[in-house]
Nucleic acid binder design. Structure first.
Length: 470
RNA sequence: GUCCCCUUCGUCUAGAGGUCCAGGACACCACUCUUUCAAGGUGGAGACACGGGUUCGAUUCCCGUAGGGGACACCA
């Protein structure tokens, strides 16, 4: 039993999207679970569409998801020579041939054969033709001699045994007329050379797997095990596309999702372990295997991601959350919170984090800890302060100022006693207090907030509110 | 058009012939806790696409229909 080697092989034509991220995750998990290696190959084969930005977006995306890869990253474009060499070998062995058809000729053939109901697009006119008949000045492509009869089967670890009649496989191009390799040739050669044992990728490649198998066989190479994952669809069931909004993992990072939540979410899309829902990565590594991957495509559900994110948020250490909020706040306001402010955030985090689903929301809710006096209240909060609110606070202020031990417990006890003396409900005191201290009508428990904020700041904010109300 | 794959609550799924008048989670609705809002707790509504078989018995096996998805480039 050789050690497992998996690989993630994106083409750098855009950001790392949700589907790619899940493919990467499954490859990574499979490798980690089996104590194997997880490799990265950038499929930048010539293509004008491949860009440096896309490559770094993919690298960043994987780094954010904390899917570390082993060995060096392979750039497919650097391997064209080796690919061509393999094509030549196939040619020499009579397993491939030169085809001199022009693109126009092929387009016409395709159209005609399609209309006539043929199973293949290319009529194989050069397959058995004598090379001496080659037209002068036409650079040929090299085509693979696909089997024409019988049936083939791909033993897929997810899809099961998939069969197909051989009469519908075209003799695909291996090497273009300009000598560059096509995708089909490149994957096979690279997977072999990289020692890949398990090819885990999207189901959109299922049909290609037949062609890949043919080539592996023709070369006398061991065919890796295949596992084709069902695709991820948008919430409407249609294929994921631009109109579904954010597709890149970077966009989710920016929206304030945690990588561990994203991993957990993606993991449960198509894979399950009984009724388990919350599956931290360590547990996933221990449990993951391909036999529990389903075959039906799944829809992307933002609510589910948000819920999971809320869960992980609540489990995250306050210091890390405070740092993430500070970073976000700095991005939005241009100034990073100082050490004192960071301390406030960290101490306030316990009350804050049960009230947010994303870091973005958390940051919004935390701004009252970071804002400079005097606070600018929301309109609802201002309304509370302009009514009897100001008077209520003015009446309460001396009581608060006289408190000896400034903590939530003492503050609540004193305020409750005050409300009772005044014959009012606690709420009618607490709400104006909240408005004055946080500038909003919704916040963590107000006495907790007061403890974190400290005596001086609280009394000052109450005074500010009183001044603004007059 | 040809070939391949898929089909359990709105969504993700458990279920591998009787344990299922189908279980969990998210979302939703109540109630509860409560100084606000959350979180938490309790409860509720909600699905085996359809039609044939096979079987004493099908969500589970087979066939068909419908619907969805994928692949059919000198793209990857």
């Amino acid at each position: 039993m050789t050690a497992v080697v998996t690989r993630f092989a994106p083409s750098p034509t855009g950001y790392l999207h949700i589907g790619g991220a899940r493919t990467a995750l499954f490859n990574w998990l499979y490798a980690r679970h089996h104590g194997g290696r997880f490799r990265l190959r950038i499929e930048d084969t010539d293509r004008k569409r491949s860009t440096e930005e896309a490559i770094s977006a993919i690298l960043d995306g994987l780094a954010w998801l904390e899917l570390d890869c082993d060995d060096e990253v392979v750039y497919q474009s650097t391997r064209a020579e080796r690919h061509a060499e393999v094509a030549e070998r196939l040619l020499a062995e009579g397993k491939a041939y030169r085809c001199y058809c022009t693109p126009e000729e092929l387009a016409e053939m395709r159209e005609h054969r399609m209309a006539a109901g043929y199973k293949t697009r290319y009529d194989r006119r050069w397959r058995d033709r004598d090379p001496s008949e080659a037209p002068a000045g036409v650079p040929p492509v090299i085509r693979f001699k696909a089997p024409m009869e019988g049936q083939s089967v791909v033993a897929d670890l997810v899809q099961g045994e998939v069969r197909s009649d051989n009469d519908q496989f075209d003799d695909i191009v291996l090497l273009r007329s300009d000598g560059t390799p096509t995708y089909t040739l490149s994957v096979v050669v690279d997977d072999h050379d990289m020692g890949v044992t398990h090819v885990i990728r999207g189901a959109d490649h299922l049909t290609n797997a037949f062609q890949h198998s043919f080539i592996f066989d023709a070369l006398g190479w061991d065919t890796p095990a295949f596992a084709h994952l069902p695709l991820i669809h948008g919430a409407d069931g249609a294929r994921l596309s631009k109109r579904h909004g954010a597709l890149s993992v970077g966009a989710y990072r920016d929206m304030g999702y945690l990588p561990e939540a994203m991993r957990n979410y993606l993991l449960r899309l198509g894979w399950s372990h009984g009724d388990d829902e919350i599956i931290p990565t360590e547990q996933a590594v221990a449990w993951f295997d391909l036999d529990a991957v389903g075959r039906a495509p799944a829809r992307f559900d933002l609510d589910r991601l948000a819920s999971l994110n809320g869960h992980y948020l609540r489990e995250t250490a306050d210091a890390r959350l405070a740092a993430l909020v500070a970073e976000r706040y700095a991005d939005a306001h241009g100034a990073a919170p100082d050490a004192d402010a960071l301390g406030l955030l960290e101490r306030g985090m316990a009350g804050l984090k049960t009230r947010a689903k994303t870091i973005a929301e958390l940051t919004d809710n935390a701004t009252f800890y970071l804002a400079e006096r005097p606070l600018v209240p929301t309109s609802k909060a201002a309304k509370l302060l302009h009514g009897d609110g100001a008077a209520v606070l003015a009446c309460l202020a001396p009581t608060l100022a006289a408190i000896e031990r400034w903590d939530a417990e003492a503050l609540e006890a004193a305020t409750r006693a005050h409300a009772e003396r005044e014959g009012v409900k606690l709420g009618s005191v607490a709400q104006p207090l909240r408005a004055a201290l946080t500038g909003t009508t919704v916040s963590p428990p107000i006495f907790e907030v007061m403890e974190v904020l400290g005596r001086g700041e609280c009394l000052a904010r109450i005074e500010d509110a009183g001044a603004a109300a007059t």
